[in-house]
Design a protein around this nucleic acid. Sequence first.
DNA 1: AGCGTCACCCGGACGC
DNA 2: TGCGTCCGGGTGACGC
Length: 266
Amino acid sequence: MPELPEVETIVRNLRAPCVGQRIERATVKWKRHVAMPGAAQFIRRIAGQTVLGITRRGKYLVFQLSEDVLLIHLKMSGDLTVVSAATPPDKHAHTVFHFGNGHELRFSDTRKFGRVYLARRADDVTGSLGPEPLDDSFTAQSLAYILQSRRRALKPLLLDQTVIAGVGNIYADESLHRARLHPLRLSHTLAAAEARALWRSLRYTLNQAIRNQGSSIDRVYRQGQHQYHFRAYDRAGQPCPACGAAIRRIVVGGRGTHYCPHCQRL
DNA sequence: AGCGTCACCCGGACGC
DNA sequence: TGCGTCCGGGTGACGC
């Protein structure tokens, strides 16, 4: 569930308690949590490294350490918290980083989809990701070019991390609704004004969600408020905020997809 | 290139 | 109440 706005919020919250801390050791309770390198090597290599900074790339958290880069993908149900080592253990905390100051960073993940990576460079893991939609370099023209250079339905295209990084099911539906574009519309058929509308709605939707500290659904991610601002996502049968028509739910590429049949014509 | 399908997981919803 | 079953969702692998 955590998409770009949720990951961005977590990154901002983790900086104060993590940056400058030395990782004395890591505990891996579930070895498959470590995607790269093997769990044993991960534990050996990370010990003694200091957290120099935390950034985000797509849906990955990127911890710059003194020697390596630690990347964490939360997938569906992952969450990261910094607590005192005295805090009662969490049965879903499959990987724990023990800091020198008596606190620990816990990667808690009920559904066990999330993964941690230790690499020399972030690119070793995130190299295939598409552009960051909120970067200054991601212009309306860049999006128009992406849309023109493929012939693909908008919904799966927005979800493809190698095309644009960080957009998931919620913000794909919300952006398409705001841009008044049908999720099955083929990318290369968009007029310049429509591509610009999608660019604007993507940036607006993501920025607004970051301002609301992301969306909390499925009890997975708790701090967000953006779920109260959904216009289409998870609102099947409820009125479209723009026209009042009932929001419809279809399945596109196996993913639940919500849109307004009146505002978003094919 | 793009699409469909499966696998990975488990909590929650649903049906009986 | 309790049990069995299904679903969802991010992504990578794989086949068409």
